[in-house]
Computed example of a mutant assay.
Amino acid sequence: MTNVAVVYYSSTGNVHKMAEAAAAEAEKAGAAVRLRRVAELAPQSAIDRNEAWAAHVAATRDVPEATLEDLDWADAVLFGTPTRFGLPAAQLKQFLDTTGGLWFQGKLVNKVVSSFTSSNNTHAGQESTILALNNTFYHWGAVIVPAGFADPVQFERANGNPYGASSVTDNVPGNVHPDNLAAIAYQTRRVVEIAKVLGAALPA
């Protein structure tokens, strides 16, 4: 069985909604799945000043926190993050910065990886956020799987990002367009399919 980890950061729920869709689709594709959120780094005072942020933190308290063991276990990992000035959120970046030990042992080589993101408005850094994440994966020696234009869903009105599924939320919590959910589902199926093929081809 292919092991898939969906590792994400979400402040008000948009990326979380996409992550849940990815986890559900991976299970449908026959994978063993772990849905994991990375640790929150923002001070509680900042969270409390944003009603939607505080509500989301409370609502997802029971989602297990990501650990390095989740990456070691996984054959494929989908990473989700909101875009922050065209870059991944600090919370996800901090988690990635703890992977040096796994990297040094060669345990991240040939992991199948793919990313998705969300921003408040169009042209707000979705593509650059995913490209920035890829810099880490090059160092890992991972196999990066982009969404591409390999499925008709990518040509739907709200899609069109070949780097990875992305959502434009208009600053509304949990506002993920159905086209974007279909896009992350397609991207997940693609990741699982390639992970299965790669796993069968590589020596144990």
Results as ranks from 00 to 15, higher is better:
198 L>W: 02
100 G>C: 13
105 Q>A: 10
119 S>E: 11
159 N>T: 06
139 H>W: 07
87 L>G: 10
178 P>C: 07
122 T>K: 13
185 A>R: 06
164 G>M: 05
165 A>T: 08
82 P>V: 01
140 W>E: 03
80 G>F: 04
138 Y>L: 15
81 T>K: 00
187 Q>S: 01
107 K>S: 11
176 V>T: 06
138 Y>E: 09
170 D>T: 12
155 F>Q: 14
126 Q>C: 02
126 Q>F: 03
163 Y>V: 03
131 L>A: 13
165 A>P: 00
163 Y>F: 13
179 D>P: 06
192 V>R: 03
186 Y>V: 13
78 L>V: 05
172 V>M: 11
110 N>E: 12
85 F>A: 09
135 N>G: 13
185 A>L: 00
151 D>K: 07
184 I>E: 01
182 A>V: 09
151 D>V: 06
85 F>D: 11
168 V>L: 11
98 T>M: 12
172 V>T: 14
112 V>R: 00
178 P>S: 08
167 S>T: 06
117 T>Y: 05
156 E>I: 08
190 R>K: 15
85 F>G: 08
197 V>W: 12
137 F>K: 08
144 I>P: 06
104 F>S: 15
140 W>D: 00
178 P>G: 10
154 Q>T: 14
98 T>D: 04
105 Q>G: 06
175 N>P: 10
190 R>D: 11
78 L>W: 01
154 Q>R: 13
130 I>F: 03
180 N>G: 04
102 L>C: 08
194 I>V: 14
78 L>G: 03
147 A>Y: 00
109 V>F: 03
101 G>P: 05
186 Y>N: 10
136 T>D: 15
100 G>Q: 14
118 S>L: 01
